[in-house]
């Protein structure tokens, strides 16, 4: 075992014979073991005093009451939120149904007499069907030129 492995092994309460053997010959690991003991002892808090122990008495009951209070308060808030949401929905529906509707142009078009609409389709109603078509011919090319 190297020193780092021994130092990590020293963190556990039990010491294997291998660790003990290393420790008996290694001054650095002996120093770490000593420091570990000192540091943990200095850092540890004393056992809870009588006042502290008394402070814990009745904690489950008090915490239960606090939890119930929180739940009730949350239910109230959820109720308020649901009511506010419903109110907003009703208001939105009211606004939607009461909104001003624009008169649509279609109505005026429909109101026109049918004759007027028919005549509106042809700008020159007197043209015969033959006048509508015209012949398409290729232009004459000068001689010797290919298209």
């Amino acid at each position: 075992m190297n020193c780092e492995q021994v130092e990590l092994a020293l963190l556990e309460p039990e010491r294997s014979p291998e660790v003990q053997a290393h420790l008996s010959t290694c001054e650095a690991c002996q120093a770490f073991a000593r420091d570990l003991g000192v540091v943990t002892e200095l850092a540890a808090l004393p056992e809870p005093s009588a006042t502290e122990r008394a402070a814990l008495e009745g904690l489950p009951e008090a915490t239960w009451a606090e939890w119930r209070k929180g739940q009730r308060s949350r239910q109230h808030w959820l109720g308020y939120a649901a009511a506010a949401g419903f109110g907003a929905l009703v208001a939105a529906a009211g606004f939607w149904s009461a909104r001003p509707v624009r008169e649509v142009v279609v109505e005026r078009v429909v109101e026109r007499p049918a004759v007027q609409l028919a005549s509106a389709e042809f700008e020159q109603p007197n043209l015969s069907p033959d006048d509508v078509f015209f012949e398409v011919t290729w232009p004459d090319l000068p001689e010797g030129e290919d298209p």
Binding site: S49, T51, E52, A55, L56, L59, E66
Partner: peptide, 9 residues
């Protein structure tokens, strides 16, 4: 101790 109790809760 009261503060510790409060934190625990």
């Amino acid at each position: 101790p009261d503060e510790a109790r409060d934190l625990t809760q």
